[in-house]
Design a protein around this nucleic acid. Structure first.
Lengths: 136, 136
DNA sequence: TTCGTTGTTTATAATTATTCTAAAGAAGAT
DNA sequence: ATCTTCTTTAGAATAATTATAAACAACGAA
């Protein structure tokens, strides 16, 4: 459980003003035991349900993008009409249950090391992501 | 080089009527040495340039979806506003040059074996895809 | 070949996720 | 308090994709 005060500091440290909208979004996103996978729409609805004061959709977009830029959220590469984000920003991978459209974390040790034995001149590797699609 | 006749047969065998639009699309897609990565829009423009008779955007969508369903095209999981497809439907992986928005094939042997040491009851693995993002 | 059926193409409208805009509001520094 | 700067917001704009329904083309049977 992270306190509101800690979110305020986290925001300040990132030169993001701690507005009540951002603090609300922090609480919905980061006050959790487990990793959280979501789309903007998921998040928007959760906020509507869970918090008294309302937050506009535009602000949810703005905030998620700001958090992503600051490295507090990770974008998950997946083919879907919506963009998925993850509160777990450590290096890790995913199962995607195609039928239920649900993501499940794979710990790094569940996948073992991935060796990329090819390189492109002038480019360096930014990230390596494994997506394991599941079917019934 | 695959002949028009072969495309016609391929289409017939897939219970897709060999229309002139579909044959044109086949020629643009499959008459190539190397694997081809594309978005619908890329393909639409290529067809406009390369073929005399014009094909509507809706038909390009329809046809790409039909080919994907039949397993002649593979959808590449990637975060982009547009959907990427690949004419290489074998099991393989990709580099994605984030700056240039370009995909590069990684042969399976360039990546080494990927061992998934976790399973979800009642589900089986459909595919394992690695996306390696590149930066400068 | 002709006819009827069924599948396909097409222009256009509709839908959906996302981004943009500009005005009002709130936070921070002085 | 006041000024500046950042943020929020509703709503408009954009862009990819999907749906619609009418015209058209392929196929099979007579």
């Amino acid at each position: 459980m992270t306190s509101k005060q800690e979110f305020i500091e986290k925001l300040r440290n990132s030169s993001l003003r701690p507005t009540k909208q951002r603090i609300n979004i922090c609480e919905v996103l980061f006050n959790r035991d487990k990793t959280f996978h979501f789309t903007i729409n998921d998040l928007f609805n959760l906020i509507k349900d869970r918090t008294a004061d309302k937050v506009s959709l535009a602000t949810v977009y703005n905030t998620v993008h700001a958090f992503h830029k600051k490295g507090y959220l990770k974008e998950i590469p997946i083919n879907s009409n919506q963009t998925y984000f993850d509160t777990n920003v450590t290096d890790h991978h995913h199962f995607f249950d195609v039928k239920e459209e649900k993501l499940i974390d794979l710990k790094n040790e569940d996948v073992g090391p991935i060796e990329i034995q090819k390189s492109i001149p002038g480019k360096k590797i930014k990230s390596v992501e494994v997506l394991v699609k599941l079917e019934d």
